[in-house]
């Protein structure tokens, strides 16, 4: 359903995408995970026709977005990161308008509007202008406007940013339902928990490059059961490697005078020994955070940076 091959986008001297390739099938949720500015929205923009790629190709349900954009767009639904609604119109009017933009008319449109309205649980607020809605309700409507025409491919660009937990749960539930109905979903987020909970397959993107790709299990395996140990205190970065040289499999991901980031197997068991080794080298630990293997630890392991930085 989605095929991206060596997609590149440059703005003058700046490169937003450095040649991304991925493919996603119908009925699956494909997560695109990365920090802000990694290139997620640029990828979505290229797929949805908002941004013209500098090089490479992208197909939506077999239609090339460059050479056959109208056919590609007609099977595509896009949930933009920011709300894109007419807040002076009602929810049904918004759904009607965006449904009509995808070619729906008459009874087919009206039937679909009522269906979506019920699905996003806004049927009882149908007569009110959207400006009276809460943020969560507006997010649900924003989602509804993208699915009113039953798209084969749905692109969601961080749809849960700033959404309350209840509305987030509802949105994730709607995404799962659509995937179960056969829709191919490309979901971008920088929330790891969301990606872990929702996505069948994941790609980690940073600085415009795809740095890891696979199922959740495959990615976890890449971390290799290694824990992530964050220490805060007083350190001497140049002496840390020597102080921790005796620990098997330890990897220093990042170190400065106030923090130390380590990747190691069985960190909880080795914690007292680590403290002792650092103490022997006249370095002190004030705060410790231990994270078991997950996507975040994978990202940090791959980039040396926190996903939210």
């Amino acid at each position: 359903m989605i095929k991206i091959h060596d997609l590149k986008k440059t703005y003058g001297d700046q490169t937003a995408l450095k040649g991304i390739s991925l493919s996603a099938e119908g009925g699956a949720i494909y997560g695109l995970l990365g920090p802000n500015g990694a290139g997620k929205s640029t990828t979505i923009g290229c797929l949805s026709g908002l941004i013209e790629p500098t090089a490479g190709s992208a197909e939506i349900a077999g239609h090339d977005v460059k050479t056959d954009p109208i056919a590609a767009k007609s099977v595509l639904g896009v949930v933009p990161q920011e709300l894109a609604l007419y807040d002076d119109l009602s929810a049904p009017d918004n759904l009607r308008y965006w449904g009509a933009a995808y070619g729906l008319r008459g009874k087919a449109l009206e039937g679909r509007v009522q269906e979506v309205l019920a699905r996003i649980e806004l049927a009882d607020r149908a007569k009110e202008p959207v400006k009276n809605f809460s943020g969560g309700m507006q997010r649900r409507l924003n989602f509804g406007c993208a699915i009113v025409h039953r798209p084969k491919v749905l692109l969601l660009d961080e749809p849960t940013v700033g959404v309350d937990p209840q509305s987030r749960r509802k949105l994730l539930e709607l995404v799962r339902e659509l995937a179960a109905e056969g829709t191919c979903v490309l979901y971008t987020t920088h929330y790891m928990e969301e990606a872990q909970e929702l996505c069948d397959r994941l790609a980690v993107i940073d600085h415009g490059s795809l740095i890891a790709e696979g199922t959740l299990e495959e990615l976890r395996d890449r971390v290799g059961g290694r824990d992530l140990l964050r220490l805060r205190g007083s350190f001497r970065a140049d002496e840390v490697p020597a102080a921790l040289a005796g620990f098997e499999g330890i990897e220093i991901l990042n170190s400065d005078e106030e923090s130390l980031l380590l990747s190691m197997p069985g960190a909880s068991r080795q914690l007292p020994a680590v403290f002792s080794a650092l103490g022997d080298a006249n370095m002190s630990v004030a705060e410790t955070t231990l994270t078991q293997p997950n996507l975040e630890s994978l990202f940090i392991q791959l980039t040396g940076r926190d996903l939210r930085e």
Partner: peptide, 13 residues
């Protein structure tokens, strides 16, 4: 500002 102009660009219209 409401994002609808960009959204219309992602439709076949």
């Amino acid at each position: 500002q409401s994002g609808t102009l960009r959204r219309i660009q992602s439709t076949p219209q």
